[in-house]
Design a protein around this nucleic acid. Structure first.
Length: 442
RNA sequence: GCUCCCUUCGUCUAUCGGUUAGGACGCCAGAUUUUCAAUCUGGAAAGACGGGUUCGAUUCCCGUAGGGAGUGCCA
């Protein structure tokens, strides 16, 4: 059975980049009729916070992404201890005592000599006595996984055949000197134990994947299929993290973007499928295929969400927006007509309140100097209240006859006089909804 | 510096050596026999550069330039 996972660390809010990873894994699992696991990678107690874990669930729920199982790494420490013992027993684990500053110095030296900054494995050559001495002097060391120096190759679901020379990578530290398990080990154990069959993550993880493949087989685990998607950049190609502030899911939500818009864009962006509005996750599942995605960095522009969101909003039924209509103050008996009139002119639900305020209170007429006389004449032909569906057409017909104006020259001044705005709903349906107008009062 | 990945319309991409280089979003125009919006139709718009290989390269190879990522006792 296909099992995928989304493994955020609760150290911040989810952003569009995270969502892309989550969505890919979710869609793969759903399409295969498999399972989707939400795993909270909270091995770092300093940075992990419960409020972020809550926020992650909340953001996923807003989008309608559901998971079949939830795990958190902080509850699995025993398992990681066992894995560490296993690696030690197999001679793939060694203790190293360099301090961070010492390591930093080594790296700088290597760089200066034009050599790759790979850990020199000095700790591997330590005699037992030397090791004991260092431990007595500095306390426990960090534990590194001894990589087997060979080319590590796999067929990536997006990148294709790819390989990395293990010798170009440092032996990864899996346990810090203070005893904290690091992501690399925890992730491998979890992927094995939870039966993860497909790991889809950002291409910032490709080097991790190489080392994790070796750790997995050292632990006698079955390695899952890997796929690394491209990373999102801003519209200018700049790293997305620089503008993360505006790209957190919650910010997008509070900007009034509809979840369908977010899902529709992120499930397709970077693929050869056209981005088109889909109203449910199920619609997105159908044609989803990782193979349709390219490996080049993908430019993402938040502004692209707006037209999609407007379209998603316009497609909603009255019941779906009933609470928003009520909140905007629209009376129940007008709700349906009002929604029909304004639905195509909304950018977000928040606009509902503006349009209703206009209907309820009217707006100061806007009259261009050259239209003063024309508007005055039109005023004389304004049909008596109440206005029905034919009010606009009979009025404009009368004004047309009286003034000889037609087309834009006829309609735009009347729209401006009635609504004070150049843009808005179809006047024929909108006019009956105007409870009062500044135009009549003038 | 080193390692990995990448480079086709503004953007996301199709093309598995021979195409009028296709689609989608955006943009522009027209239509909707009455406005803006919405909708529909149409249009403009592309193979980073330089070498090869080949009868023929967007496609294969090499190089250059550019972009992204990694190079953590973060995830």
């Amino acid at each position: 059975m296909t099992v995928t996972r989304f493994a955020p660390s609760p150290t911040g809010f989810l952003h569009v980049g995270n969502l892309r990873t989550a969505l890919f894994n979710y869609l793969i699992a759903r399409k295969a009729g498999g399972r989707f696991v939400l795993r909270l990678d909270d091995t770092d107690p300093e940075r992990s916070q419960e409020r972020y874990a809550d926020a992650i669930r909340e953001d996923l729920e807003w989008l309608g992404i559901t998971w079949d199982r939830e795990e958190r790494q902080s509850t699995r420490l025993d398992r990681y201890h066992a894995a560490a013992d296993d690696l030690r027993a197999k001679g793939r684990f060694y203790e190293a005592f360099e301090t961070p500053t010492e390591l930093d110095l080594k790296r700088k030296k290597q760089l200066n000599m034009g050599r790759p900054p790979v850990y020199d494995r000095a700790a591997l050559d330590l005699s037992d006595d030397a090791r004991d001495a260092l431990r007595a002097e500095r306390g426990p060391g960090a534990w590194r996984f001894k990589l087997e120096h060979a080319r590590i190759a796999w067929t990536d679901g997006i990148l294709g055949d790819i390989s990395i020379d293990a010798a170009s990578v440092s032996d990864p530290v899996l346990i810090r000197a203070d005893g904290q398990f690091l992501y690399t080990l925890a992730s491998v154990c979890d992927d094995i134990d939870f039966g993860i069959t497909h790991v889809v993550r950002g291409s910032d993880h490709v080097t991790n994947t190489a080392t994790q493949i070796q750790i997995m087989s050292a632990l006698d685990g079955k390695t899952p299929a890997f796929a690394h998607h491209s990373l999102l950049t801003g519209p200018q190609g700049e790293a997305l993290s620089k503008r993360l502030g505006t790209l957190a899911l919650r910010d997008i939500r509070s900007a009034g973007i509809e979840p369908e818009a977010v899902l529709s864009l992120l499930a397709r962006l970077g693929s050869s499928d056209p981005v088109e509005l889909r109203h449910s996750l199920d619609d997105l599942v159908a044609g989803f295929d990782l193979g349709k995605f390219g490996s080049a960095p993908t430019k993402f522009d938040v502004e692209d969400l707006r037209p999609l969101s407007a379209r998603a909003l316009a497609a909603l039924s009255v019941p779906a927006v009933a609470s928003d209509l009520a909140a905007a103050g629209v009376p129940d008996h007008l709700a349906s007509d009002f929604w029909t009139a304004v639905r195509d002119n909304l950018s977000t639900r928040a606009d509902l309140a503006d349009w209703w305020a206009l209907c309820r209170d009217g707006a100061a007429p806007v009259v261009a100097p050259e239209d003063v006389e024309f508007v005055a004449k039109a005023r004389a032909h304004l049909p008596p209240r109440p206005w029905d569906a034919s009010a606009w057409s009979s009025w404009t017909a009368a004004v047309k006859e009286a003034t000889g104006r037609k087309g834009r020259g006829l309609f735009m001044p009347l729209r401006l006089a009635l609504t004070g705005r150049q843009r808005g709903p179809d006047m024929a349906t909108f006019m009956p909804l105007l409870q009062r107008t500044g135009f009549e009062d003038s």
